[in-house]
Amino acid sequence: MELLEQLPELLAQFAAGELDAFETLFRQFQAEVFRWIVRIVRDPAVAEDLTIETFWRIYRARARFQPDRSFGAWARRIATNVALDYLKTARTREEQFAASEFESAPDPRTGNPGIQNPAIRRELRERTQRAFQQLPAQLRAVAALALIEECPHAEIAEALNLSTAAVKSRLFRAVRLLRNKLGNLNTGHG
């Protein structure tokens, strides 16, 4: 990718609307864009569609791209916006997916010694999933990237076009909302 980003000719051709240049960029960056989106939306099938939507927006906005800047960073920012748009409009679908995923693929990391009863453990996981999916889109994206994926705050800030302080603030709000929804977990099941 480093090599590719050093090819200003290709980027200039893309900015001029040449489909061959766009195809080269697409093939080079599709996996990276997919990986970023799937970390936010947590649904591989949806992430494939959103990857297409991201590149569609990239192609339409090609005239605004400055060939001397990083294509990867620009693509990631557009991908983040596409993922946020999806989270804002598809909460119900996400919940259904999460429920079925939960049923089919138990996570071996669930061995919390404090909660032995499988029914209680299952309820805890379901409630946590629900609480996570009910977060507003921006907070959910920040929570997914920072808490689950452990992305550096600076990386999240760049993708979301925010300051690092704003990322920390949103993370704080996300955790507070999760705590409000799951507040009695420890006392109830511990």
């Binding site: 990986r35 799937v38 990391r109 669930t110 996570f132 808490l147």
Partner: peptide, 15 residues
Amino acid sequence: AELLKQSLSPMKREL
């Protein structure tokens, strides 16, 4: 973070 990692199942991450 630990609670979310335990609750959300692993998923395909590579295209």
